[in-house]
Amino acid sequence: MAIIVDKSTRLVVQNLTGREGSFHALRNRAYGTQVVAGAAPGHGGEDVEGIPVFNTVSEAVRETGANTAATFVPARFAADALYEAIDAGLETIVCITEGIPVHEMLRLYQYARDRGVTLIGPNCPGVISPGKANVGIIPAEIFAQGSVGLVSRSGTLTYQIGYELAQLGLGNTTVIGIGGDAVVGSSFIDILSRFEADPETEIVVMVGEIGGDEEERAAQFVAEEMTKPVFAYIAGFTAPPGKTMGHAGAIISGSAGTAQAKKEALEARGIEVGTTPTEVAQLVAKSV
């Protein structure tokens, strides 16, 4: 098994006719993901290398049985596209788009939750279950199939840690980039609870960064609700207070939300924190 995406995933790509959408949809399909449809208003009836395009998401769902969406819609239209995907009855939506206004996300978070929809992102690299399905922009060749669940707020740092794990002969059940924005659809806790319930996942690696208190909340959840071992890495120890480091999430103001505070919160709950990406992979290798 794996979580969020697998062999049963039937993907509809929002804005399949766009440059990013088509490039990554075809890569996802080449990996073995069932990419069953595209949605792009005004492009109904066209196809992208054999993938049929529909004007609306609900039409795509009706005609192809799509159950998951990948959203590549530009930021200013993305909130609308996400409401459309939720209302079309999809179970899972992976939003790659970067730059969605945070007020839109406040409303969308609530709207998706109220309807039981799993929203990953926005501003995330996507989800890959090695050997089963890849939804989004994650370079699949880095990751091997295995028993380590990997969840991260960052994109390339996830690749780095997956690569370090692979070098030590460790593969993944599922790798999820939840996104670095201030408000994202799924938190560490949402993903950790699914890894806990997934019989194939034996160990979990959590990759955090400065800003917010998601890591601190996750530490408590791990201690109270999880039986599987969790290891962590935190980026941003040298970030000065009050500086924005690219991600909306990578913000610190004052003491809460610093890398040091997160490390201490995790260690206080018995979660080992690697000092470097290499060290966290070594900690995992040692524990198996």
């Binding site: 991260s152 707020r153 960052s154 994109g155 390339t156 740092l157 996830t158 780095q160 670095g180 990759v207 960064e209 400065i210 890495y233 980026a235 941003g236 120890f237 040298t238 970030a239 480091m245 690219g246 991600h247 990578a250 890398a259 470097t276 990406p277």
Partner: peptide, 11 residues
């Protein structure tokens, strides 16, 4: 490339 990787590099 990528905010997380750059922050990790600073560290």
């Amino acid at each position: 490339n990528g905010a997380g990787l750059v922050m990790s590099t600073l560290d």
